[in-house]
Design a protein around this nucleic acid. Structure first.
Lengths: 254, 254
DNA sequence: ATAATAGTGTCTTTTAGACAATATGTA
DNA sequence: TACATATTGTCTAAAAGACACTATTAT
C-alpha cells in the first residue's frame, strides 16, 4: 500500500489525494455448482435487457457490486449474493481468484472477486420455482461448449472455465465432491459423484479403501434404504467446513 | 473507464449510473520470497511516516493502489510493483488471493489482490544497494514471529502467514522451490532448498528419483564446478512459467 | 433361486523411505 | 591415498489398480 515514489513531498501529496484517486469498480461473482440428473451444473443469471446495461440479455455468473454500506467483507458479500439466488446459508464456499483489468467491463476498469460454491441440489428445491425466469442451471459441459462459445457476459466464460478446471483438479486429491451430496450419503453415491466430475470410472475397491482410510472424513450413519437390493451404509462428514486432502491423486480408469 | 467501441452518449449514461456507487479502495500487494543465506526471506517495505499515513513507519508488504490510467490488468499491476522494488522482470508470479473488508484500512472499505513471487536472490543483487533504507529482507520465521507479533501494517501479518502456508503446502507436491534458484542448479542444491522451505530433511535417493522422473521438469546442463570434490550435474528447467506437479506428496524424514 | 447391488480379498504395480554401496574429483 | 560429496542400487513399505470373489436382500 505504499507509494512507490521516493520523495517525501510526493508521498504526502499522494496520501492527500487518496480520496480523489480514481477507483476501479469492485464486484463479487459466485460460481455455484450442484449436481442435477447425474450432471454437474452451474447457476447462471440473465442480465437485464435495458439498453444502457452491459451485455443485455446475456447469461452471466450471479454477482454484483460490493455494497460498501452493508457488506462486512468479501466473503460476506459472496454469501449474500449466493443467498439471494439460492436461499442457501452455509454452503462450501472457497475463493477462486480475481479478474481485473481495463477492458473486461465497458463501464470502466473493474475487478471481480470470484468465489465458488458447492451445494446439494436437494437443499434448494423449495426456492426453485420462485424466480425461474432469469435464473437457470446449465450443465457445465454444455455451458463450456455452447455458452462459452456464444459468450457469457463479461469474461465470465473464462472464469467459469477456470472454476471447472479448479474443481476437477482438486477432486483428484480432495473430498470436495462430498459437498455436492445431502447427508447421509452412501459410498456408491459418493463414487458416482467423483466419476461424474472427473468424467472417468474409478475402481470400487481402491475408492472405498481410500475414502474409509482418510482421517476425519466419514462417520457411519446407519444403513440406508435406497431401494438397492442390499442396503448400503450411510455416512456423514466429520467436518463440514473443510475438505479432506488425500496423500495421492487418483490414477486408475477402473 | 472508457471503451472506444461505445458511443459517447452510452458511455456517459454508464458513468452517471455507476458513479453513484461508492467504490472500495483497490490495491495490489506482492509477497516476494527469495533464498538468502540458506533461509527463506520475504521483502518488506517501511510505510511513510507522515501523520496522515496509515500505519506510519511500520513494515508492510510492497504494493499500492491500482493505477487505473496505467495498469492494464491486475497481473501487470503486480509486475509493476515487483519491478519497482526488485528490478526483476519475469519472476514466477501467482495469485494468492484477495482480502477485502470494511476495517482493514482506516481510509475505508478496501480490497487487496495479493500475488506471490519466487525469485533467485542472485537475480537482484545489482539493484540491492540503491534503496536499502526502507526496503529490507526478513527471514520468514522471524517475520512470522517478531513482525507478525509486532504487527505488520494493515492485515499484512495474516496475508504473509497465508502466503507462507501456501508456499509450504505447494512445495510438498510441486517444483516451486526451483524458482528460488539460478540456473543451472544441481540436485543437491535443489534438495537443500526443499529442506529449507519444508524445514525437514528429505531422503537423497527418493528425492533424485522423483525429480528426474518428473516429465518436463529438468534437462541436463553439463557438470558444474561448485567446489565439491565430485562435480555434480547441472540442470535447467524445461518450463519456466509453470511448476511441475508430482503425483504424491513428500513423506519421509530422510 | 436369481438378479442386482454392496462390500471384501488377493495379487500386482508403482513409488517412496531407509540405507548401504559405488563413483569421482580435490587436497 | 584419504576424504568429501555425488550418484546408484537394494530392500522394504505403503497405497493404489485390476479383478475376482462373497454378502445381502428384493423379486
Amino acid at each position: 500500500m505504499t507509494d512507490p515514489s521516493d520523495s517525501p513531498a510526493r508521498r504526502t501529496a499522494y496520501a492527500a489525494r487518496v480520496k480523489d484517486i480514481e477507483r476501479p469498480l469492485v464486484t463479487v461473482d459466485v460460481v455455484i455448482f450442484t449436481l442435477i440428473a447425474d450432471a454437474l451444473q452451474v447457476l447462471l443469471v440473465q442480465r437485464p435487457s435495458g439498453a444502457r446495461e452491459p451485455f443485455p440479455g446475456q447469461w452471466a455468473l450471479p454477482g454484483g457490486f460490493v455494497d460498501v454500506a452493508h457488506d462486512e467483507d468479501l466473503r460476506a458479500c459472496a454469501l449474500r449474493k449466493l443467498r439471494d439466488k439460492t436461499a442457501v446459508e452455509s454452503p462450501y464456499l472457497e475463493q477462486l481468484g480475481s479478474w481485473g483489468g481495463r477492458t473486461r467491463d465497458p463501464r470502466g476498469w473493474s475487478v471481480t472477486q470470484v468465489y465458488f460454491a458447492l451445494l446439494p441440489w436437494a437443499s434448494l428445491q423449495p426456492r426453485k420455482g420462485s424466480n425461474a425466469a432469469d435464473v437457470r442451471w446449465f450443465p457445465v459441459d454444455a455451458a463450456n461448449a455452447a455458452q462459452t462459445a456464444d459468450g457469457l457476459a463479461f469474461d465470465h466464460g473464462l472464469i467459469l472455465a477456470a472454476a471447472v478446471e479448479r474443481l476437477r483438479s482438486k477432486v483428484e486429491y480432495t473430498s470436495l465432491p462430498a459437498f455436492l451430496l445431502t447427508e447421509p450419503f452412501t459410498l456408491p453415491q459418493l463414487q458416482q459423484v467423483y466419476e461424474i466430475v472427473l468424467r472417468r470410472p474409478l475402481d470400487k475397491s481402491a475408492f472405498r479403501t481410500r475414502a474409509l482410510a482418510a482421517p476425519d472424513f466419514l462417520e457411519e450413519a446407519g444403513l440406508q434404504a435406497t431401494g438397492a437390493p442390499r442396503a448400503p451404509m450411510g455416512y456423514r462428514l466429520v467436518k463440514h467446513l473443510q475438505p479432506v486432502t488425500f496423500p495421492r491423486t487418483f490414477q486408475s480408469r477402473g
